[in-house]
Nucleic acid binder design. Structure first.
Length: 327
DNA sequence: CGGATTTGACCGTA
DNA sequence: TACGGTCAAATCCG
């Protein structure tokens, strides 16, 4: 928990750098042909990026202990009992990050208001198993990305009702999405997602602008972090303020996981979906991703351009001047 | 009929 | 050996 600061510094730099890239993209996208959804998504992403950066500055490290709420970090809190979620009423939403030695994963608890709170997180999932878990009152369901075979997406998730409160489901995400699922598609729900399936690859080739799954995780610490006040915000974006008082709009609670699997630190918009294989090699060692980012980008789709860290100069003295991005 | 779900079997790990 | 995770055949569903 107490760290030298190297990790968060790097994260901070990367966050800022991502904000830079996103802003540049937004600049390019602002125009008559631009879809409002894309712009809005970029804006939210940018805000989230800076939000995280600010959070890092504000709280220092301990990211592994953070619970992330509404796309922002909050200082460490106990996971159970008296947690904010218990008071958050319907839109209650909380992320919990649990450390795992060999299989880091990121767990989110979602209160189910209707019957479908188990997974409409913007991705399409296919259930592949269910198990009764020892000591648990409810079985655990296993899902993998629908596009596992088509695009080699290795993202999986586990959904299990909470013993303590059946109205809450714990969703544990593992791996990251390497498939392309746009926010417009995702935010339109499953119907859109169904339509999209047939055109997934076309979408990939047509608008390889950015990956709509984004996020932030730290696998080397055995945890994953993430979440944006995502693209599906119906109206007002989060205003980057006050991380303590933010509450989710109702729709957000089922959308905010969109990018849970992505390593935004290294994945930049245009081609940030190429690290799926990384996870296999480095679930518990982020350094492997860092040291050999391009050696494992053997996506089955074969036509993805992957971001090369070589292209990124993580200058410690990175200067950030927003004005130049809009010039 | 194709894709998604169910469910028992199988496998790896601790 | 028990348990969690995955596979795959059977079944369901639109």
């Amino acid at each position: 928990m107490e760290q030298t600061g190297g990790w968060e510094q790097e994260t901070l730099i990367n966050e800022l750098h991502q904000g830079y890239e996103l802003t540049k993209q937004l600049k390019h996208h602002i125009g008559p042909l631009t879809s409002p959804e894309s712009c809005e998504f970029l804006v939210h992403k940018i805000i989230s990026t800076y939000d995280r950066a600010l959070s890092i500055l504000k709280f220092g490290d301990s990211a592994g202990e953070f619970q992330q709420v509404a796309g922002t970090f909050e200082p460490p809190q106990p996971l159970t009992g008296g947690s904010p979620m218990s008071e958050a009423s319907d839109q209650c939403h909380k992320d919990a990050y649990k450390k795992r030695k060999t299989s880091p994963r990121w767990t989110e608890q979602v209160r189910v208001c209707s019957g479908k709170g188990t997974g409409d997180d913007g991705f399409t999932w296919r259930k592949y198993g269910q198990k009764d878990i020892l000591g648990a009152n409810f079985p655990r369901a296993y899902y993998r990305c629908t596009h596992r075979h088509v695009q080699g997406c290795l993202a999986t998730k586990q959904v299990q009702k909470s013993d303590a409160d059946p109205s809450i489901v714990e969703i544990t995400y593992r791996g990251r999405h390497t498939c392309i699922q746009s926010p417009a598609l995702a935010s339109s729900g499953k119907e859109f997602a169904k339509q999209k399936k047939c055109h997934l690859l076309e979408e990939n080739q047509r608008i390889p602008l950015f990956n709509f799954g984004t996020g932030f995780k730290t696998e080397d610490m055995g945890i994953m972090e993430e979440t944006f006040p995502s693209f599906s915000f119906p109206s007002s974006p989060s205003k980057t303020q006050n991380v303590e008082t933010i509450s989710f709009p109702e729709p957000l609670k089922e959308k905010n996981l969109l990018g849970s699997e992505f390593l935004s630190v290294f994945e930049f918009p245009i081609d940030n979906f190429g690290f799926g294989e990384n996870l296999q090699h480095s679930e518990s060692d982020l350094s492997e991703i860092i040291s050999a980012p391009t050696s494992v980008t053997n996506s089955p789709t074969g036509n993805l351009d992957f971001f090369s860290l070589d292209q990124v100069d993580f200058d410690p003295n990175f200067q950030f001047d927003a004005s130049e991005f809009f010039s």
